[in-house]
Write a protein that binds this DNA or RNA. Structure first.
Lengths: 150, 150
DNA sequence: GTTATTTTTTGAATATTATTCATAAAACTT
DNA sequence: AAGTTTTATGAATAATATTCAAAAAATAAC
């Protein structure tokens, strides 16, 4: 893929979009200025965190999606968030949750293929404090990020 | 919350945003028309599926996040996608994946509280063909939809 | 390797759309 | 009910996206 497109994709993945105020106003049979005012309020009070793009991940080399369940080693139970924040930094990581049950953490990761996932997992899961892991691979995505796929 | 804000949130959750071309151009030290051209290409070939907002879900009454692992009943193994599509329709469902391993499906759901999750689960998981389920509740989100939280 | 063809970039002109602002209306407070 | 804050509105402006024709670059064909 072209260099500029790759950069554009990276930027759109995390933000750099904006609401279509006049289109929203039309859909809601409301005035653009009213919608504008309310959206600015939502932004100001932190309700809206970002405006971003959702992709057909197969087309951007992230078609292979995995959910990784993680157990922490006993010495890291005190501060699971340190590891979570560490994992969250990685651009291939879509989400990080600290969860209830047998596993302490659930991380959603996107990569190109099972081979690339293996490489990624080696670096990602070698963080000190990560114990046992169990990976669930997605065979098919029907919806992501509230957006239906195809 | 105000009525118009609720509607705005619903619309922004699934789309109704647009890239900030001139801001992207500035960041990339490129021309707005060049960025425009390339983004239109990405839209045309289906690389970009939607432009949407990401929220502080606590603030929109969806602070309780669950991951539901699902087993299908044996008579539905032939068409797991029917059920997946059914689940994907629901606005509280953020994602639906058909996965490898002991469970056939992983569904990410957002609701207000554990009580509301119970109500939701009752309707959602009563779909014919869904067998055993196991729910992992998120205690804390560090990242969602590629966007770091707080 | 040169020519032809397609794709991408560019800058100027235009069209859209967001934003600002002053005022009015509505919703809460006391 | 009077005062105060929040929200809605329309007109004016600013900012931004979009269109277009032309040039440059990249790719394919010979």
């Amino acid at each position: 893929m072209k260099d500029i497109r790759l950069s554009v994709i990276e930027l759109l993945k995390e933000g750099n979009c904006t609401p279509r105020i006049s289109k929203l106003a039309a859909k809601l049979h409301s005035h653009a200025t009213t919608v504008h005012y309310n959206i600015k309020q939502l932004e100001k009070d932190g309700t809206v965190v970002a405006y971003k793009a959702v992709f057909d991940y197969k087309k951007i080399g992230e078609g292979f999606c995995s959910y990784v369940l993680i157990n922490l080693t006993s010495d890291e139970y005190g501060d699971p968030e340190r590891i979570a924040r560490e994992l969250a930094k990685h651009p291939s990581v879509e989400s990080v949750d600290i969860i209830t049950g047998e596993w302490e953490m659930l991380v959603k990761v996107r990569s190109q293929s099972i081979e690339q996932y293996y490489e990624l997992a080696r670096t990602l899961l070698s963080i000190k404090g990560i114990g046992r892991t169990h990976t669930l691979n997605s065979l098919k995505q029907l919806k992501t990020e509230f957006v239906p796929i195809k």
